[in-house]
Computed example of a mutant assay.
Amino acid sequence: MRRRHHFHIDHAGHSVSATVRMGHGGAVEVLVDGKETGYAKLSGDRPVAVTVELPTDPPSQAVVHASPGPGEPHCALEVAGAEPKPMSPRSY
């Protein structure tokens, strides 16, 4: 059975959202300002890191760390020079 978990955070005036698809063919999709900018396949409960580019001036890189399990998945956004910030779960 497939299940989706959604996460969100606002950073530097930009919206960063992640969807963690569980089950067979699981994956993490990352959207920045509504555009898909990152994707990674899941392998069991192993955490994955998805590198994305934020459209700042100049553009900057960020990493979404997704941990699918065990238990409920969670995501965090890491930008250069700062500790990873947890992304809030969304119910949609």
Rank of each mutant, 00 (worst) to 15 (best):
R3A: 15
H5V: 00
H5A: 12
H5M: 10
H6G: 04
F7R: 08
F7N: 07
I9G: 06
I9F: 08
I9D: 08
H11L: 06
H11G: 01
A12C: 04
G13T: 05
H14D: 09
H14E: 07
H14L: 05
V16C: 06
V16S: 10
S17I: 01
S17M: 08
S17R: 15
S17F: 03
A18G: 07
V20G: 09
V20R: 10
R21S: 13
R21T: 14
R21D: 13
G23E: 05
G23F: 03
H24P: 03
G25H: 03
G25Q: 08
A27N: 14
A27Q: 10
V28E: 06
E29Q: 14
E29R: 13
E29T: 15
V30L: 08
V30H: 12
V30P: 06
V32Y: 12
D33G: 09
G34H: 11
G34F: 08
K35V: 15
K35H: 12
E36G: 11
T37I: 01
T37E: 15
G38W: 08
G38F: 09
G38I: 08
Y39V: 05
L42V: 07
L42H: 02
L42E: 06
G44S: 05
G44E: 00
D45G: 00
D45H: 08
P47F: 03
P47W: 06
P47G: 02
P47E: 10
P47H: 07
V48G: 03
A49P: 00
A49N: 14
A49M: 11
A49V: 00
A49Q: 15
V50G: 12
T51L: 10
T51G: 02
V52H: 11
V52Q: 05
V52T: 04
E53S: 14
T56W: 08
T56K: 11
T56H: 09
D57S: 14
P59Q: 03
S60I: 03
Q61N: 11
A62N: 11
A62F: 10
H65L: 15
A66G: 04
A66V: 03
A66I: 01
S67L: 02
G69N: 05
P70D: 10
P70N: 06
E72F: 04
P73Y: 03
P73H: 08
P73D: 09
H74D: 14
C75K: 06
A76Y: 01
E78M: 11
V79T: 14
V79P: 07
A80I: 01
A80M: 05
A82Y: 06
A82C: 09
A82D: 14
E83P: 02
P86C: 02
S88P: 01
P89C: 04
P89I: 02
R90E: 14
R90P: 00
S91A: 13
S91Q: 12
S91E: 14
S91G: 07
Y92E: 13
Y92C: 13
